[in-house]
Design a protein around this nucleic acid. Structure first.
Length: 143
DNA sequence: GCCAACGTTGGC
DNA sequence: GCCAACGTTGGC
């Protein structure tokens, strides 16, 4: 199961607002970037990702889950771009700030650091586990 | 609010 | 198909 990161300005769409959408979540329409599109096409229902607040807060604030597979985005008149649905899973007990990500050497290769403008990003398993831990989520002991 | 980085557009 | 101009994003 791959992991992802979704980015949004909280003034446009916040994690709290996504929580308010309940179990069905909402469609993540409006993405107009080809790298982000490829990432969404690779997503499978049930895969989880982080939710990052850009500009205000600048922190990973919660866990989300893909609740509907990639399909055309009705808000794109050209029909070139698509979307998935995501729903909120849980907030991070302790949001992981961009400063904290940048201060952690093991996260230096994260897309959030190296390609900060990409709105839908892949997250490696190592990055996922480390940020969950930094965010205060319990982690199963490794074998 | 500034500006660097990046993606997109459009003229040639 | 190149590349300059432009618009947008997002950190600072």
């Amino acid at each position: 199961m791959a992991h992802w990161l979704f980015k949004s300005e909280p003034s446009a769409w916040s994690f709290e607002k996504l929580v308010g959408c309940g179990a069905d979540g909402t469609d993540w329409s409006g993405v107009r970037n080809h790298s982000a599109k490829l990432n969404m096409q690779a997503m499978r229902v049930g895969e989880q990702g982080f939710f990052y607040h850009s500009n205000e807060g600048k922190a990973i604030v919660g866990i989300v889950e893909v609740s509907n597979a990639y399909r055309p985005d009705p808000t794109d008149p050209a029909g070139k771009f698509g979307m998935v649905d995501i729903r909120a899973v849980r907030p991070l007990p302790r949001p992981v700030t961009l400063d904290a990500v940048k201060a952690e050497k093991r996260l230096a290769a994260m897309a959030l650091v190296t390609n900060s403008r990409l709105s839908v990003q892949p997250v490696t398993e190592a990055e996922w586990a480390l940020i969950c831990e930094m965010g205060g989520l319990w982690q199963p002991p490794s074998i």
